[in-house]
């Protein structure tokens, strides 16, 4: 990988670090982890792009496919293809989908309806969504989310900025027939991540 300034992103150790943060996030939904110390090493890319690149270098290769719907779409697509050899695919049959939380309600509905939810025999053959949001916190607010389910001791509160309510409604529909469903990882350009596996129940408000 090209190195411009500062430390080089290490494909062995930085991806290991990112994976462990992802695993910890997935095992504890609602918990906010940071991968900034690794992602910032990809300093020749923009903040949003380096987050996508970090996930891609950690999880993607020629065995899986991806799709991107983000502002710098063409640039990221090219980077991911060149650096992971992962297959670019359509939203309806992709393994990993990178999205902007700020897309319109119609697009949210369309994307979530299209993506793979797995089958009863193979519930793991579903799409994992990585969604860019503005801010993540565990502080209470008027539009807080109350999360419960496996990985959460009773309940955890989180506030997500830069994502519409439509997402949670559509997610609930997609996850109605457990074990079918979609797993979501929210991320900010500052390097924070928060996971919402299909088992997590989301309730709005107080």
């Amino acid at each position: 990988m090209a190195k411009v300034y500062g430390q080089t992103f290490d494909r062995v150790h930085d991806t290991q670090f990112i994976f462990r943060k992802l695993l910890d996030a997935m095992a504890s939904p609602g918990k906010i982890n940071s991968i900034q110390s690794s992602s910032e090493k990809l300093d020749f890319l923009s903040n949003e792009t380096r987050m996508v690149a970090s996930f891609a270098l950690t999880l993607l290769d020629g065995e899986v496919s991806f799709a991107i719907q983000l502002p710098e779409k063409m640039l990221i697509q090219e980077y991911v293809q060149n650096n992971t050899f992962s297959r670019l695919s359509d939203v309806h049959d992709t393994d990993y989908l990178f999205l902007d939380g700020k897309i319109s309600d119609e697009e949210v509905m369309s994307f979530i309806q299209q993506v793979k939810k797995g089958t009863l025999i193979q519930p793991e053959s579903s799409t994992t969504l990585f969604i860019l949001v503005e801010a993540l916190s565990n502080t209470p607010s008027n539009d807080q989310l109350r999360l419960s389910g496996p990985g959460i001791k009773e309940e955890i509160i989180c506030t997500v900025k830069g994502i519409s309510d439509k997402w949670w409604k559509e997610r609930e529909k997609a996850n109605v027939e457990y074990p079918l469903g979609i797993d979501i990882i929210l991320f900010t350009k500052e390097g924070e991540i928060l996971a919402l596996p299909r088992t997590t129940k989301i309730e709005r408000g107080e």
Partner: peptide, 23 residues
Amino acid sequence: DEGSKREIRRKTLKAVAIPGYQV
């Protein structure tokens, strides 16, 4: 090798998302 690790890592994340299901 890193390819093998990536495959195991992808499957591990799925396994955590579907508790008790054998991936």
